[in-house]
């Protein structure tokens, strides 16, 4: 039995290394010079360089990084402000509507061109192309439904006795929601907010189509860079690492909620 377990562990470790290897290779590459990257056979040991990161940081990459941060944060805040009360209301209402559920799920799952085309056409006239506001609005299409679907189960399982007690004490409905219900759902709120942020941050398609330069986000900037200096792999890798760093940290922090976030609450992980 113990031998079995040892084999199992070895297998699990081996597999996780295999799965992680491609990712680690990219990280490694971001610390290499171009000559080291192209060397054959590859050097196992090399003196790491920070030059790739330095070059990125002094370039205009920082601006796209800021755009990503601002648009992701703003759409998350908006989606939370609007979506949390709605999720609460849905959790407390007796009747459910199939159509409403379908609408919310479908807007989370629709193919991106479905929104990209009308938004692009409308933004041309509204002057919202290449603006952060334009991106924030389109990120609401998936963030809002995400908030509703993630938060509803939290409110459903929260005991109603507390808020009812608050009403009897003379608190208004709003007060009860803010002072009693929300604090009890704090972990869920945090996880939901982080997932919203991650999804907006990860967006590539909408930013590719709806921004030019001023509002360009970090993922688009990295790809642009890739087309531009196709063989400076060290810098491309460094750009990739910078784009993934915040997301990696955040998502591992809320890993318990990842699955429900990615499946819009269909499965609790």
């Amino acid at each position: 039995m113990r031998a079995n377990k040892a084999i199992l562990y070895a297998l699990a470790i081996g597999l996780s290394l295999l799965v992680l290897a491609p990712f680690l290779w990219l990280v490694r590459m971001s610390f290499q010079t171009n000559a080291q990257i192209f060397a054959f056979p590859p050097h196992l040991w090399f003196r790491p360089t920070g030059a790739n990161y330095a070059a990125l940081w002094e370039g205009e990459f920082t601006r796209s990084f800021m755009n990503s941060a601002v648009t992701s944060t703003a759409s998350t805040v908006l989606a939370m402000l609007l979506g949390v009360p709605a999720a609460y209301a849905l959790a407390r209402m007796r009747r459910r509507s199939d159509a409403l559920s379908l609408w919310i799920v479908a807007s989370r799952l629709a193919p991106p061109t479905a929104f990209a085309i009308p938004y692009f056409l409308a933004y041309r006239h509204l002057g919202l192309l290449d603006t952060r506001i334009g991106l924030i609005i389109i990120y609401l299409t998936f963030d809002l439904s995400l908030v509703v679907w993630l938060m509803r189960p939290f409110f459903e399982t929260a005991p109603r006795a507390l808020e009812e007690a608050a009403w009897i004490d003379g608190a208004g409905f709003w007060q009860a929601l803010v002072r009693v219900v929300l604090p009890s759902a704090a972990p869920g709120l945090a996880a939901t907010a982080i997932l919203c942020f991650v999804f907006s941050w990860n967006d590539f398609f909408f930013a590719l189509i709806l921004t030019r330069t001023r509002a360009m986000t970090a993922p688009v900037a990295v790809v642009n860079f890739m087309n531009y200096v196709g063989w400076q792999w060290g810098r491309i890798a460094a750009g990739g690492v910078m784009v993934m760093l915040p997301v990696l940290v955040f998502s591992l922090a809320v890993r318990r909620f990842l699955v429900s976030g990615l499946t819009a609450g269909a499965v609790k992980g």
Binding site: V19, I37, V198, A237, L252, R255
Partner: peptide, 28 residues
């Protein structure tokens, strides 16, 4: 270990693209 297995799916899709582009490019 389960946490380690999560890494691929939490990476931004664009970074996944870069990772595999590297793996599929003969010179590097």
């Amino acid at each position: 270990l389960r946490t380690l297995f999560l890494v691929p799916m939490v990476l931004p899709p664009i970074v996944v693209g870069i990772i595999w582009k590297v793996l599929y490019t003969p010179d590097i």
